[in-house]
Design a protein around this nucleic acid. Structure first.
Length: 535
RNA sequence: GGCCUGGUAGCCAAGUGGUAAGGCAGAGCUCUGCAAAAGCUCUAUACGCCGGUUCAAUUCCGGCCCAGGCCUCCA
């Protein structure tokens, strides 16, 4: 990492805070140390790309904090007790542990592929039952919670700041109440902390009888255990603001007192499908795994970072008719036959032929950057121009790249602007790479060298572009070939034939073979070193 | 109904009280046996509507329209 990428003191970082509803500088409780809690997944199914975003956003934050020289304590929980897990286990006739283990492993595998750093601590609810029970006991002692027939509920009306995070008053909530009828509760707004056991469900002993924790108490208990009564940052998806995070505040401050718990709240926006939260027509959502089968994970990560984290991100899906390629709109996707060619439509086939234009654009862009890296490495390795190491002749676009990039990130994690800050330097480097025939151009070598020297810091912050370019580009091509159902061996065979024709300057035959390859979907690049192909 | 976001060129998307990043798509050119890739140039008088504050608003305030989210598990 270069000097400029690793400031010795903590560079100012401003973040939007949901509680105060303002962008403000991150002020740490302890200098040099940042304690962060992120709400993790409930592990009952494969994670979708929304989960990916909720993991990538805090990952960018952690990377930035660490690169700024801070020690970060990063906690992200796994929720492994929950209704949906129990249901899934019952459906499959296996124990809940089978379900939670399977999907925890898959979650880790997906996030590793997306280059998300593992949290330092990843507590599970099932390992924290005594802590949860103890916390509930404190709330009962404070008269903020009350047991009823084996359940324990939180007495919302007793917590004066309830609604501060989600900006709504108790009256608002009462008014719009779509709350289930439960005459055990003193108020419909009260929420459950402990659920009395039902036959056949996981259960643990407690002062109120056997049972299991409610949905919100776990995060209060686990953050308290691992980060203490007060910590710096709490992150999660926007939808968690109410009621989950509102309830966490009520629980934690109810037990530990005013002014405790998270000092700063970070919430990421949602991923939308076709302008709505989810696409009903194509079966609601796409999993990370499905996307990984089609594209390299860096494409997805780049795509997720292309938009500011608080904005909604539209995940465009194009569904062509598998038979005639007519683009089906959402309504037509539900039809039994294609309106253009009358071929029968079925969901599974539709999903298999789906395209993601935004992801493809991201995929191309990532490849462009890797390609620039590769060309740059080669140019520096092969040219013998005299060294001219004066820093002042580095092209300004390139010398300004890293500072501009970091400034954008430090302004509320503006990854969109940070990525945009790479465009001009990239163009400048490629421009200089064009001067093959006059390598004596002033500043060329120092500029390329500087670019190559600064890119690792950018990779480190973004979790992107850290692979060997040749390897990445080859894997990408192979993945794309598989996606387009292209016969790689056949392409290679035709390519060799064309090489032979070109050697004989038989342009007619070479062009014929290129046309044939084009039909297969391959695009050729001829160079002095020979021909290669891409898609 | 309550609360909350957002509406920027063909599409995606930053940002700002003083005349608007970046990407994609499109056009021409350079390079090339021809291409591709890369680069260069160009392209759009893009800031939902109506008022107000101001010397000046896309940026602040009010109203309206539209879209979306939350109010139930949800990243």
């Amino acid at each position: 990492m270069t000097e400029s990428a690793a400031p010795s003191s903590f560079a100012p970082l401003s973040l939007y805070d949901t509680l105060s509803a303002t962008k403000k500088p991150l002020a740490l409780q302890e200098p040099g140390r940042c304690k962060l809690y992120v709400c993790g997944p409930t592990v009952y199914d494969m994670s979708h790309i929304g989960h990916a975003r909720a993991a990538v956003v805090p990952d960018i934050l952690v990377r930035l904090l660490r690169a700024s020289g801070l020690e970060v304590v990063y906690v992200r929980n796994i929720t492994d007790v929950e209704d949906k897990i129990i249901k899934r286990a019952a459906d499959e006739g296996v124990s809940p542990e089978v379900i939670t283990t399977r999907y925890t492993d898959a979650y880790h595998d997906d996030l590793d592929a997306l280059h998300c750093l593992r949290p330092d601590i990843e507590p599970r609810v099932t390992d924290n039952i005594p802590q949860i029970v103890a916390l509930i006991e404190r709330l009962v002692a404070n008269e903020l919670a009350y047991p009823v027939d084996g359940d324990v509920y939180y007495r919302v009306a007793r917590f004066e700041h309830y609604g501060a995070l989600s900006k709504r008053s108790l009256d608002d909530m009462q008014a719009g109440a779509r709350v289930e009828i439960n005459e055990r509760k003193e108020s419909p707004l009260d929420f459950v902390l402990w659920k009395g056991a039902k036959p056949g469900e996981p259960q643990w002993p407690s002062p109120w009888g056997p049972g299991r924790p409610g949905w919100h108490i776990e995060c209060s208990a686990m953050s308290l255990r691992h980060l203490g009564e007060t910590f710096d940052l709490h992150a999660g998806g926007r939808d968690l603001i109410f009621p989950h995070h509102e309830n966490e505040i009520a629980q934690s401050q109810g037990a530990c007192g005013p002014g405790t718990f998270a000092r700063h709240w970070l919430h990421n926006g949602f991923i939308d499908f076709a302008g709505e939260k989810m696409s009903k027509s194509l079966g609601n959502f796409f999993t990370i795994r499905e996307v990984r089968n089609l594209y390299l994970p860096e494409a997805l990560r780049y795509f997720l970072l292309g938009v500011h984290y608080r904005s909604g991100l539209n995940f465009d899906v194009e569904a062509p008719c598998p038979s005639c390629r007519h683009l089906l709109d959402p309504e037509q996707q539900q039809a039994s036959h294609c309106p253009a060619c009358a071929a029968p439509l079925e969901l599974a086939r539709l999903r298999a032929h789906v395209r993601f234009p935004g992801l493809e654009e991201a995929d191309d862009r990532v490849a462009y950057i890797y390609d620039t890296l590769l060309r740059c490495q080669r140019a520096l390795a092969t040219t013998s121009e005299p060294d001219a190491p004066q820093q002042n002749i580095v092209a300004s676009a390139v010398s300004g790249m890293l500072p501009g990039f970091l400034a954008a990130l430090r302004d509320d994690l503006n990854t969109a602007a940070a990525i945009a800050a790479l465009s001009e330097p990239l163009r400048e480097v490629n421009r200089q790479l064009e001067f093959k025939k006059k390598p004596e151009i002033a500043g060329r070598r120092p500029t390329l060298a500087r670019f190559l020297a600064d890119m690792p810091a950018i990779s480190q912050h973004l979790g992107l572009f850290a692979d060997d370019p040749t390897t990445y580009l080859r894997e990408r091509r192979d993945r794309k070939a598989a996606r387009l159902r292209l016969d790689v061996a056949e392409v290679e065979r035709l390519l060799r034939m064309r090489e032979a024709a070109r050697a004989k300057k038989d342009w007619k035959e070479a062009d014929r073979l290129r046309a044939e390859l084009g039909l297969l979907g391959a695009t050729l690049q001829d160079s002095a070193e020979g021909s290669t192909w891409t898609l």
